[in-house]
Design a protein around this nucleic acid. Structure first.
Length: 531
RNA sequence: GCGUCUGUGGCUCAACUGGAUAGAGUAUCGGACUUCGGAUCCGACGGUUAUAGGUUCGAAUCCUAUCAGGCGCACCA
């Protein structure tokens, strides 16, 4: 709709026009403050300009009225236009809100180390990434969801060590002395038992077996991670393993050219010259690559694969890494502005009002799977999607475990289910509903219809601004309009039944599409929790 | 100390990226069903947008300073 209006304005004025939704619906469906900016150029008052523009629109079929108020230009869409659009959407439900954006995008997210199950902090980035992915797909982007698996380096060695230590203490019943850092958690029991089946109990006795154990274990952990993600409707197109990238090492280093140099027996990247705070070590004195080394080869590989745009979602604690990775990208000869790093802020937990510190190595983490079991995937996704990703999120665990009406996901799903119930009770036929024309239904119905047809704009805006919370905000507001409408207007058995059901079908389509884009199921019927 | 993100009703967040009277939810209080699902609806209370300047027709939004907080500042990932 907005596109349509924009196009008309563009043609009329020969320029791009800012179109906004007036705060107060009585002003119309869309509005523009264009007269204010034209005032300077034309040396006329905004009121006069707006008035002149308003009167020049009278012949358009799309608008029922164009008015100037205090310098604003307010547009009201015609019933014909809205009714036609609604019919089209119901006939082509899969196309509603879709577009044909041509850009090819690589979206990398989660990328948690395969050393343990995902915790609640990972979940936020996962939800953020997957929602962006769904939005982009809907908008027609050629987007790839990618998981970068850090399966090389210290943390993998540590995983092998941790399993051995765990098994020696708990299975072999030996007295073990724990080093400063190692992983803990229930999953080690699962891994240890699996290792016995795979290798036999001997694998725990020889320290030289740690490597072999680790290489097997990290794949097992990845299976757990992929399952946890799948349980919340999050899926990846591609996985890239750090361990497979190093065969390219020499070639990539050569490609870096003057970007890398040797000093004190180490290899450094000259990132300071590209805006980083200082140069960074890429290869240590003993020849082991640092974490950054993997990212350099990985990003080279990404850019060689040739996308138009790259989005990385990182935890906010990695923001110091942006400058150095971008430096590397530039030395590799690519445009670093094509790399967009989005940060997912920390999720800080409170337990009984006290900060609850999580540490993967200490094992006192809140697992994503625990929360999903507790409140369900839908609620988890809704909660994380409804907060701006770059603000810290804080909540009390006890609060989080509550399952009551304060969770808006129920409110939205209830709205959808209500419509479905009405449709099931309809006294008119499907054909009557499809054939009905959405006109002369009164102002409240017109408003509801317009609100429901606004979804495409919300999708586009949410993705363009990378602010996915706009979608849940919109759905909540639409659900509220529906509930109010339902309360005010009797539907079944009335003269306008077919029309009204058609209107509600559009609302249902909008809710269902929006929920799908959030990875949430639109329920046909609400069932009370018994326990 | 340096960098970075963030400060909006008691709490959690909006405000279309500079536009019309700063809006929702929640909490609290009060009201609405012999009616299509009350997991609903209506109303009340609640704001100097952290503070002080500045930019202009117009600022929660942009600039400067100050204050407060999160996160970074590794040859760990």
């Amino acid at each position: 709709m907005k596109q349509r209006v924009s196009a008309i304005l563009r043609e009329k004025l020969g320029r791009e026009v800012i179109l906004e939704k007036p705060r107060d619906r009585s002003f119309g469906h869309f509005a523009t403050p264009i007269a204010f900016s034209l005032a300077k150029e034309l040396r006329k008052s905004p009121m006069v300009i707006a008035q002149e523009l308003a009167s020049s629109f009278e012949d358009t079929a799309v608008f029922s009225s164009v008015e100037s108020v205090k310098g604003y230009l307010n547009f009201r869409l015609s019933e014909d236009f809205l009714a036609e659009y609604a019919s089209w959407a119901l006939e082509n439900p899969a196309e509603f809100g879709k577009q044909q954006k041509a850009q090819k995008i690589l979206l990398e997210f989660v990328s948690a180390n395969p050393t343990g199950p995902l915790h609640i902090g990972h979940a936020r980035g996962a939800v953020y990434g997957d929602t962006l992915y769904r939005l982009a797909k809907h908008l027609g982007y050629d987007i790839t969801a990618e998981y970068y698996v850090n399966d090389a380096g210290n943390q993998i060695d540590l995983l092998g060590l941790s399993i051995q230590l765990y098994a020696r203490e708990n299975i072999l019943k030996e007295a073990v002395e724990y080093p400063e850092s190692y992983y803990r958690g229930e999953y080690l029991e699962t891994l240890a038992q699996g290792a016995i089946e795979k290798f036999g109990i001997e694998i725990f006795k020889d320290e030289s077996c740690q490597k072999e154990l680790a290489m097997w274990a990290k794949d097992e952990v990845m299976k757990i991670i992929v399952k946890d993600l799948g349980d919340t409707n999050i899926f990846f197109d591609t996985f890239v393993y750090e361990s497979t990238l190093y065969e390219d090492w020499d070639r990539v280093m050569a490609k870096m050219g003057e970007g890398v140099y040797e000093k004190d027996g180490k290899v450094w990247i000259a990132s300071e010259a590209k805006g980083d705070a200082k140069d960074r070590v890429v290869v240590r004195e003993d020849g082991r690559p640092t974490y950054l080394a993997g990212d350099i080869v990985y990003h080279n590989q990404k850019f060689e694969r040739g996308y138009d745009h790259y989005i990385n979602i990182w935890g906010a604690d990695h923001h110091g890494y942006i400058a150095r990775v971008k430096a590397a990208v530039e030395y590799l000869g690519y445009d670093s502005t094509k790399l967009e790093v989005l940060l997912s802020q920390m999720v800080s937990l409170l337990k009984d009002g006290e900060p609850y510190k999580m540490s993967k190595r200490a094992g006192n983490v809140i697992l994503m799977s625990d929360i999903v079991e507790e409140i369900g995937s839908d609620a988890l996704r809704y909660i994380f999607a409804s907060k701006k990703s770059d603000t810290a999120l804080e909540f009390d665990l006890s609060e989080f475990k509550k399952q009551d009406s304060s969770n808006p996901i129920f409110y939205i799903q209830y709205a959808h289910a209500r419509i479905k119930t009405l449709l099931a009770k309809a006294e008119v036929s499907q054909e009557d509903i499809a054939a009905a024309t959405l006109k002369n239904l009164g102002e409240q119905a017109d408003t509801l219809l317009f609100d429901a047809l606004l979804l495409p704009e919300v999708i586009e805006d949410a993705f363009a601004s990378r602010q996915i919370q706009k979608l849940p905000d919109y759905l909540k507001a639409l659900a509220a309009s529906l509930h109010k409408f339902y309360y005010d207007v009797r539907i079944i058995g009335t003269e306008d039944e077919a029309k009204l059901l058609k209107l509600l079908s559009v609302v249902a389509l909008s809710l269902k599409t929006g929920l799908f884009l959030m990875g949430i199921e639109a329920k046909e019927r609400m069932t009370k929790e018994d326990d």
